[in-house]
Structures are given as structure tokens and as C-alpha cells.
């Protein structure tokens, strides 16, 4: 039987969800028998591949580059899983949305007002979206695993259910924050 092609993606988030993913510890070894990691911050792959079975996406969609990547992910993935609060609902990443929705205001606040050194806004980076988006505000999402971060056990449960071809039952199992 061919291995399930798994990808994990890190958008605008703190990488905590990936840490939690790695916290599956010895269970990762069990997973390794069933999956092939085809794209991940911990794998050296430049472009998001085609024909991916499951993609775990951490982080909210913060800039144009991420939006484009997410759309490609959606196109190339059978099951897209929003991993963690930022991906599920924006979380901390989206706190900037309260700032009157002005990108300039956000940049000023972060890089000028609250900076002690080199007070100027960055230029050679992808342009921020007007609002940080939860994944389902941009593309269709198949499953949601909330948590900041979601526990390693929960991630492991969801992955195993998906590998078994079942729908994970989240009621009572997750916790926002």
C-alpha cells in the first residue's frame, strides 16, 4: 500500500503548533510507517507538491504570498486541516484586525511606535493583507483542530482517524487557547 502523502505548512503563526506536532514523540515513529512527509518547515522542499493527501496548515493568512500558497495547497490537497487557533479563527495573528483595518497603521504600530531600534517599516517583504484571515475565510477547509497549540494527543488522534478513513469527532476533545 502506498504511503499517505502528508504536508505541514507554517503560515502566520508562532510555530507552536508544529512544536506540538513534534511533541507526538514516539508516536511520530508509528506515523512514519504510514505517511510520507512531502512538504514541511522541517523538510527541505521548495515548492508545494501536487497530489497531497493531507495537509496540516498552521497559522492565519497574513499576506499575499501566504494567500497564494494556501490557494495552491487547496488545489493540490485532498484533505485540508486547519491546525491550531490561528488557522481556525485568526487568534493572536488576527488581533491586528481591530486596528481600523489599515495595514499602514499596523506596520506603524509594530515597527515604529513599539520599536526601540531602527524605527521604520519593512519594504522588501510580501504585502500584508488588509485583514489577517482564518483559513476558511480564504478557502474551503475540511477539518479543524483548535488549540493554542492543540495538544500532541489531539493532533495524533485526528491524524490517526484520518488515516483510518474516519471523521474525527472533536466534541469535548479540543480547547481554544
Amino acid at each position: 500500500m502506498a504511503k499517505v502523502r502528508l504536508a505541514t505548512v507554517w503560515l502566520s503563526g508562532c510555530s507552536g503548533c508544529h512544536m506540538s506536532f513534534l511533541d507526538q514523540d514516539e508516536k511520530l515513529l508509528e506515523l512514519a510507517g504510514e505517511i510520507e512527509l512531502v512538504y514541511s518547515p522541517i523538510a527541505d522542499v521548495k515548492n508545494f507538491p501536487e497530489n497531497v493527501d493531507i495537509t496540516l496548515v498552521e497559522g492565519a493568512v497574513g499576506n499575499e504570498e501566504q494567500l497564494e500558497l494556501l490557494k495552491r495547497i487547496r488545489k493540490n490537497t485532498k484533505i485540508l486541516v486547519a491546525l491550531g487557533d490561528c488557522a481556525v479563527n485568526g487568534n493572536v495573528t488576527a488581533l491586528r484586525n481591530s486596528l481600523n483595518n489599515s495595514v499602514e497603521e499596523v506596520l506603524k504600530k509594530a515597527y515604529v511606535e513599539n520599536a526601540t531600534l531602527k524605527q521604520n517599516t519593512p519594504t522588501h517583504v510580501p504585502r500584508l493583507l488588509k485583514k489577517a484571515l482564518a483559513l476558511n475565510e480564504a478557502v474551503k477547509v475540511d477539518f479543524y483542530v483548535p488549540g493554542c497549540p492543540p495538544s500532541a494527543n489531539l493532533i495524533n488522534y485526528v491524524l490517526n482517524e484520518l488515516l483510518e478513513g474516519r471523521t474525527p469527532a472533536l466534541e469535548g476533545r479540543f480547547k481554544y487557547g
Binding site: 493572536v92 488576527a94 484586525n97 481591530s98 466534541e171 469535548g172 487557547g177
Partner: peptide, 27 residues
């Protein structure tokens, strides 16, 4: 904007708990 991870009530919040219980895993 309910952002549990930075909220003083995280872990002691009835809204958060009900979301878990009722399976409100996304909006």
C-alpha cells in the same frame, strides 16, 4: 474578538468550555 490564548479567563471560561462541549471547532 474572543482570543482565548491571550485571555485572562483561558481555562476558566464558560464560553470556551461550551465551545469544546458542543463541538464548535470553527466559525
Amino acid at each position: 474578538p474572543h482570543v482565548c490564548s491571550v485571555c485572562v479567563a483561558n481555562g476558566n471560561c464558560e464560553l470556551q468550555q461550551l465551545a469544546t462541549e458542543l463541538g464548535v471547532d470553527h466559525l
